[in-house]
């Protein structure tokens, strides 16, 4: 009796499911170190079919979420696979490098990953609430100094580290208000007046303020204070470069795709080629522009060099980083 019911339910479910999902064979697993819905998830899901397209043949690229340990779980999983190029992962740099830098246990080392390409990067911007109006310029911030409160994600996250390094460079000892789950949550925190200022990726900020959606109105209260760049400011505010802190321009994030170390050169080159073509695909660039992600393709060799450069740069701040995690 019950089996009949179950079979019936199954049939109904299958009819529905089958109409929604096409059947696929599994060839390459494209790991996502975080849960569905986030930035890494969307980038990976956007890239998977493009990589398929440029690989040609009958290879399917199947995205798979493997959240855990702030991205460590997926990276550990990747390096423990057979080196056959069947598993890819978008690394979050410098986030994924952090355990290697501060000597936390991890199976992987970002310096030995077989890098394939870089998909996107982002740079930061310091924002405050226009409503509160406490700070008009960055100078106001530096004179206010130690009473500054910064809503932020947990200690050890990329945003926290960048803020810690930046504030350290200006001799400011801010008070972090931690525990926000995402950057849009802490941005909302600044708008509500939970804290004074915070750091946002330029892409997200642009998306918030230019959004035509009435719904995003609240975010229009955000106003930029300081841009992290050595070039001219896109937002008409002071930049770290113009204030003589050129070394800070590195602060940001890179989304770099890698595979299991020790992958045979022929296999690796073939995949690296397809992945690079995918990240350079005009369709990907157009999508990035639309959703506010700075698509920034790099090939395998450039990506490897970039990974080593980032590692060396953040290693200089080992003490700041270690302190922020231990706090």
């Amino acid at each position: 009796m019950l089996s009949r019911v179950i079979t019936g339910t199954a049939a109904a479910a299958l009819a529905v499911g089958a109409s929604i999902l096409p059947a696929q064979a599994k060839n390459i697993t494209f790991l996502i170190a975080y849960g569905p819905g986030g930035g890494f998830d969307t980038v990976t899901r956007k890239l998977a079919p493009l990589i398929e397209k440029h690989l040609g043949g009958n290879v399917n690229v199947v995205p798979k979420n493997m959240p855990g340990g702030r991205g460590k779980k997926a990276a550990n999983y990747l390096v423990n696979r057979k080196p056959n190029g069947r598993n890819l992962l978008i690394f979050n740099m410098p986030g994924h490098a952090m355990p290697n830098i501060i000597g936390e246990k991890a199976d992987y080392d970002v310096r030995t990953i077989d890098w394939l390409a870089r998909a996107a990067e982002f740079k930061y911007l310091i924002v405050t609430s226009a409503r509160a109006g406490k700070f008009k310029t960055w100078n106001d911030v530096t004179s206010y100094k130690d009473k500054i409160k910064i809503p932020m994600t947990a200690p050890g996250t990329t945003g926290y580290l960048a803020t810690a390094i930046l504030m350290d460079a200006y001799g400011i000892k801010p008070k972090f208000i931690t525990g926000y789950k995402s950057s849009s949550k802490y941005a909302l925190g600044v708008i509500r007046g939970d804290g004074d200022l915070t750091i946002l990726a330029k892409g997200s900020f642009r998306k918030y303020i230019t959004s035509k959606k009435k719904n995003r109105q609240a975010f229009k209260d955000l106003t930029p204070l300081l841009e992290i760049t050595n070039g001219p400011s896109q937002f008409g505010v002071e930049t770290t470069g113009s204030l003589g802190k050129k070394e800070l321009a590195v602060l940001g994030g890179d989304r770099m795709i890698g595979t299991t170390p020790g992958t045979p050169k022929a296999v690796k080159d073939k995949i690296a080629n397809a992945v690079f073509k995918a990240v350079s695909d005009p369709e990907f660039a157009a999508w990035g522009k639309k959703v506010g992600r700075d698509v920034a393709p790099l090939n395998a060799a450039q990506t490897k060099a970039k990974a080593l450069e980032l590692f060396a740069y953040y290693s200089k701040f080992k003490s700041v980083l270690a302190a922020s995690v231990k706090k």
Binding site: A10, A13, L14, G17, A18, A23, K26, V62
Partner: peptide, 9 residues
């Protein structure tokens, strides 16, 4: 099998 392996991949 049908639900998870076939339909849901």
């Amino acid at each position: 099998y049908i639900l998870f392996e076939v339909v849901l991949q």
